[in-house]
Amino acid sequence: MAPVLAKARRTGALLNPIDFLDGFKMFGSLFKPYVRYCMEEEGCMEYMRALLRDSELFRAYVTWAEKHEQCSRLKLSDMLVKPHQRLTKYPLLLKSVLKKTDDHVMPPNATPCHATPCHPMPCLALMPGAPGSC
């Protein structure tokens, strides 16, 4: 995305969604850790709750850490869901870009993605390591 933004700033031209194609082709490798993280989020949250319940040392550390400015007043549970929340905003961003795009013509090698109940984030469902069908 950085090269696309740099080009737009340099030329003063509007962003061209087609310029993002190379970045989207890299989604599979870039978002692989997100897929695993999201798939294991529930277990991670349960583990955190167990540690908070059973370990006074962990509770003391979390209380100390959450008071630091770097945490922006977020609790540990809030920080743990942040990647998931960020990831779920991408379809909204892409829909907004598409709505603001003058030319809705897709390049010949592009494959459209559509949400389904099984895959609310369909492009991520196509990535290696993502859960399969329902």
Rank of each mutant, 00 (worst) to 15 (best):
M1H: 05
P3L: 01
P3V: 01
L5H: 02
A6V: 03
A6T: 03
A8F: 01
A8L: 01
T11G: 04
T11C: 04
A13V: 02
A13G: 02
L14M: 08
L15H: 02
N16H: 04
D19A: 09
D19P: 05
F20G: 07
L21C: 13
D22L: 14
F24G: 15
K25F: 15
M26I: 07
G28L: 08
G28P: 11
S29I: 14
S29G: 13
L30C: 03
F31W: 11
K32S: 15
P33K: 08
P33H: 08
Y34E: 11
Y34W: 11
Y37Q: 06
C38Y: 03
C38N: 11
C38W: 02
M39A: 15
E40H: 06
E40M: 06
E41I: 10
G43R: 04
M45I: 06
M45C: 02
E46T: 10
E46Y: 02
E46C: 02
Y47V: 04
Y47K: 09
M48P: 00
M48E: 04
M48D: 00
R49V: 04
R49E: 14
A50Y: 03
L51W: 02
L52F: 00
D54L: 02
D54Y: 01
S55T: 03
S55Y: 01
F58A: 03
R59G: 00
A60D: 09
A60I: 03
V62L: 01
T63G: 03
W64C: 04
A65P: 00
E66N: 03
K67E: 13
H68I: 00
H68L: 07
E69Y: 10
Q70C: 05
Q70M: 06
C71P: 01
S72T: 05
L74V: 03
L74N: 14
L76I: 12
D78P: 02
M79L: 14
M79T: 03
M79Q: 07
M79H: 08
K82S: 06
P83D: 13
P83S: 12
P83V: 13
Q85A: 09
Q85E: 12
Q85Y: 05
R86H: 15
T88L: 15
T88G: 10
L93Y: 14
L93G: 14
L94G: 10
K95G: 10
K95P: 01
S96H: 11
S96D: 13
S96Y: 07
S96K: 10
V97F: 12
V97K: 08
V97P: 09
K99E: 13
K99M: 09
K100G: 04
K100Y: 08
K100A: 15
T101L: 07
D103V: 09
D103Q: 08
H104V: 06
V105K: 09
P108E: 12
A110Q: 11
P112A: 12
P112I: 08
C113W: 15
H114E: 15
T116S: 14
T116A: 04
P117M: 07
P117L: 08
M121T: 12
C123S: 13
C123V: 14
L124G: 11
A125G: 15
A125T: 05
L126T: 13
A130R: 05
A130T: 10
G132R: 10
G132S: 12
S133R: 12
S133T: 14
C134S: 10
